[in-house]
């Protein structure tokens, strides 16, 4: 697939909401809970169509997650829909104890994640959630890249036997996958053709998979081969595919809409080091500083999370290696 072929989809949040409306028609145990967040979560149509399957809690995220855990314990399939920033900070203890530790299969949907809220600033950004949740046992973590991955993740979540966190953005995403692509929670997806050797492995998650994919096209113009992976699941983490990609690549660039500490990059680096796979590696994400003011796009560009920026990072890394 090249950029001429990629067409635009909708926001992953919309893909999520549409999938849920479809699934809830035949499954009355599906509930959506919200904290004055139905509009931002795009679930107002759901609330209107299935008023008995929608529970409003008001601006009270801790109560929201607590109530949702109780509902799940009674057999309900609960999708908690609230901004990722508040869910995974304000209600982190409820996620840790009431959901994960107590093992209730709540589906925690972190909306407008990462820096989706742009100029609203740090209170509204979630750059810590992957780190915090990876340090909490028994909650799977899924960060879909496009509408296809989102729809598949939501379908899988309905029957998922464990607690799960699904992190969604609100910007329209390009369509990256063929609808026949195999999707499974815990299995990374390779977007580029399989080869014996790559110059760089571009390992990405969520809304940064698209710029990683477009970076691979820029690199191809320079005669460089990339292996682009969408690691939509941080947990379970696909060690096998990541190790394979790394082993066949000269260098690795990871990218995520998250702090460079404790997210995908840290996970990949610590795994590869312990597996004995050593490659020059760069972790691209939001650095440990006061995040610059801007829209999501401006913040991405500022920190090199763009096709240009990532291609540049890969080129620098490769030159370094060949020096």
């Amino acid at each position: 697939m090249d950029s001429n072929e990629t067409s635009m989809g909708v926001a992953n949040l919309d893909a999520f909401a549409d999938t849920l409306i479809e699934l809830a028609a035949n499954d009355h145990d599906i509930l959506v809970t919200a904290s004055d967040s139905r509009g931002s979560g795009r679930v107002t149509p759901f609330a209107e169509k299935y008023p008995d399957q929608f529970i409003e809690i008001g601006i009270a995220e801790q109560n929201l997650v607590g109530v949702s855990a109780g509902l799940a314990s009674m057999g309900k399939k609960v999708f908690v829909v609230s901004p990722a920033c508040f869910l995974t900070a304000r209600a982190l203890e409820q996620i840790k104890n009431d959901v994960a530790y107590s093992d209730h299969p709540v589906k925690v949907i972190g909306i407008s994640a990462g820096v989706s809220y742009g100029v609203l600033g740090t209170t509204h950004h979630s750059l810590h959630d992957l780190a915090a949740l990876q340090a909490i046992n028994n909650i799977d973590i899924v960060v879909p890249a496009d509408n296809f991955e989102t729809g598949q993740a939501i379908r899988a979540a309905v029957v998922h036997p464990r607690p799960i966190y699904i992190r969604l953005g609100k910007k329209a995403m390009p369509i990256l996958h063929d609808p026949t692509t195999h999707f499974e929670i815990g299995k990374a997806i390779q977007l580029t053709p399989v080869r014996e050797e790559y110059d760089v492995a571009l390992i990405a998650t969520g809304e940064t998979v698209a710029p990683a994919f477009f970076a691979s096209q820029l690199l191809a113009e320079q005669g460089l081969a990339s292996c682009v992976l969408s690691v939509h699941s941080l947990r379970p983490f696909d060690e096998q595919v990541v190790e394979q990609a790394a082993t066949h690549s000269k260098s690795i660039v990871t990218v995520e809409e998250h702090s460079v500490n404790g997210g995908l990059g840290s996970r990949v680096a610590s795994f590869l080091m312990q597996a004995g796979v050593f490659r020059p590696l760069r972790i691209v994400g939001i650095p440990d500083e006061h995040t610059v003011t801007g829209s999501q796009d401006e913040i991405f560009n500022h920190y090199g999370i763009s096709a240009q920026g990532l291609a540049q990072t890969a080129l620098q890394l490769l030159k370094k290696e060949t020096v």
Binding site: I59, G121, T123, T293, G294, E298
Partner: peptide, 27 residues
């Protein structure tokens, strides 16, 4: 306000003279 690189984000911060506490998450 709200422009790239500005100190004036869409919620109060102590980067702005006259503001005493960063708020924006309610409660």
């Amino acid at each position: 306000v709200g422009k790239y690189g500005s100190n004036f984000v869409g919620h109060p911060t102590r980067d702005i003279p006259g503001i005493e506490q960063n708020t924006g998450a309610l409660g």
